[in-house]
Nucleic acid binder design. Structure first.
Lengths: 129, 129
DNA sequence: CTGGACCTTCCAGTGCAGGGGAAGGTCAAG
DNA sequence: CTTGACCTTCCCCTGCACTGGAAGGTCCAG
């Protein structure tokens, strides 16, 4: 199948597919005599995997790593598990940080709601922040 | 005071201060006869405000907007309050999204913990993702 | 008068994941 | 034979907040 068909079938764009090839997430595609990329149907599964990885918040670099392991003939499940563990740790930290930030902004905002703007000293710009 | 002193006093770098001037967050500084930037002490408060804004997760563009209002002579408190409201909405959405993501990754990870890698069909790359 | 610390401008790059658009080749239909 | 849809490579642009480095000017101590 040609690049446009693959793009439509996987809900992406031809730009993105060429970019993935360039980044090493997709193998260099076969070419027709006229130079068009000619994809085999197994690229559908590979693209779906890439999308699942992205949905899980993995970077393209991490997905590439997993694909590389699979391409070398080894099931990448162990590495996937490690990446997911790491991802959970990062997410927990990120969520905690955002919750903290939310709390302190809510506090600032509550103060700002009582605004008496004219009492705001100019050299502080705004005393509610 | 010179740019290096201001940078040290506010815990930033000379690069950043020039960048802020370039972006319009700091007014064009006065110059000594030899062309060095010569800052007045009120830049300390302004820089602190910028840092407080960043700590609240505002972008430099938003902070610039607030500073512009203040520079025009109006207390920016109303606008600050609006920005904080918006920020709370964004944070709530972002936190909810991350919590969702965390849940679905935890599920994937629980499955991966039971890994039987050899049952992983290669065309799916890894059945745990 | 020399060395080193500081300052100036300007250009370019970082990370992430692509997107925009030019210039040109190919293919099928009318 | 031409039109239009598709494909190719190529290079630059996006947003965000800086950071690095080159080439040159200035200031002060020794």
């Amino acid at each position: 199948m040609r690049i446009g068909e693959l793009a439509e079938a996987t809900g992406t764009t031809t730009k993105t597919l060429r970019f993935y090839e360039d980044q090493g997430l997709l193998p260099a595609a076969d070419r027709t005599p006229s130079g068009y990329r000619d994809y085999t149907p197994d690229m559908l599964g590979r693209l779906d995997f890439i999308h699942r990885g992205q949905a899980a918040g993995l970077t393209l670099a991490q997905i590439k790593q997993i694909l590389g392991i699979r391409d070398s003939g080894t099931p990448p499940c162990g590495h996937v598990s490690d990446l997911l563990t790491e991802r959970l740790r990062d997410l927990d930290a990120q969520i905690a940080q955002l919750v903290d930030l939310r709390r302190s902004i809510a506090e600032l905002h509550d103060n700002a709601a009582l605004a008496e703007p004219d009492t705001c000293p100019p050299d502080q710009v705004c005393r509610y922040l």
